[in-house]
């Protein structure tokens, strides 16, 4: 077993996540897609921790930090979305273009 299948799986998940993040209309699904991309990165970190040039635990610890940051991001993101919905009545990202004006 080598590192290549893990990296390929991570690339597939990352690209799907990217597509979702840039094409979906619902802000919550966009957030979810971003989570998927973060997970792809975590998979890379852990795969390298085992099969990389220098095997060790540093990659796992990094992925832990990553998960923490992702949790914080989701919490704040959902809070912002709820507030936005309360003020503008929509979670559609195509309507969120007030910065243009």
């Amino acid at each position: 077993m080598s590192i290549t299948p893990y990296l390929t799986l991570a690339a597939i998940l990352f690209c799907i996540g990217l597509y979702g993040a840039l094409s979906k209309k619902n802000a919550i699904i966009v957030l979810l897609s971003i989570e998927l991309m973060l997970n792809a990165v975590n998979l890379n970190l852990i795969a390298f921790a085992k099969y990389g040039p220098k095997p060790g635990l540093a990659g796992q610890i990094f992925s832990l930090f990553n998960i923490t940051v992702a949790a914080a991001e989701v919490a704040v993101g959902i809070a912002i979305l709820i507030n936005l919905y309360r003020n503008r009545g929509t979670t559609d990202v195509t309507d969120m273009d007030t910065m243009k004006r």
């Binding site: 990217l18 993040a21 840039l22 990202v93 195509t94 969120m96 273009d97 243009k100």
Partner: peptide
Amino acid sequence: LQNGQVQTYGLATL
């Protein structure tokens, strides 16, 4: 391009 849509900006970046 400057339509205020973050997704369009993301696409351009990609």
